[in-house]
Amino acid sequence: MKHTINLLVENNVGSLLRIAGMFSGRGFNIDSISVGSSEEEGLSRMTIVTHGDDEIIEQINKQLNKCINVVKVFDLTGEAFVHRELALIKVQATPTERSEIMQIAEVFRAKIIDLSPTALTVEATGTEDKINAIISMLQPFGLKEVSRTGRIALKREFQGVTV
C-alpha cells in the first residue's frame, strides 16, 4: 500500500543523505521525495511517498524516528490530507498548435509560463493523476522536457470532511 509520510528534519545536508541512505540500505522503496523549508527556521519539511506491506511501513516509520536529525514523523495515510505535485512540461508547438495546447491547459487549470516560436512550457499543479492526465494529453504534440516534483502534503486541519 502507498503511504505518504511527512517529516520535519533538521536543515542540513546530512539529513537528506541519512534518510535516503536508510531507505536504500534497508531495501525500502522511495516513490518520491521532496524537501523544502518549513514554517520553522532550521527545519525542513520532507514528504516521502513509499509503499510496502504493514510490517514494512511500521519499520519505515520506526527507522525514520531513529534518525537523530528527524524531529517528527507523521504518516498521513489513513488521515485526511491534501497533496499536490507540480510539473513543468515543455511541449513542441507550432504557431497553429498553440491554441489547442492552451485550451488543454485551461481545462486542467494549468498556466503557460514560457513561449517560443517552436515550443511552450506549461505549469501544472495537482494530484499525481491530474499531472499524468495532462502529460498524456500533451504527449501527441511532442514532449521536449518534463520536470516533476514529488508529492508534497499537509494534514487537513478539519478532519471531519474529506474531498
Binding site: G14, L17, G21, G25, I68
Partner: peptide, 11 residues
C-alpha cells in the same frame, strides 16, 4: 562521513 553514514548512529 559518506563512507560511514550507514554504520554510525550519527556523525
Amino acid at each position: 562521513l559518506g563512507i560511514t553514514r550507514p554504520i554510525t548512529k550519527h556523525s
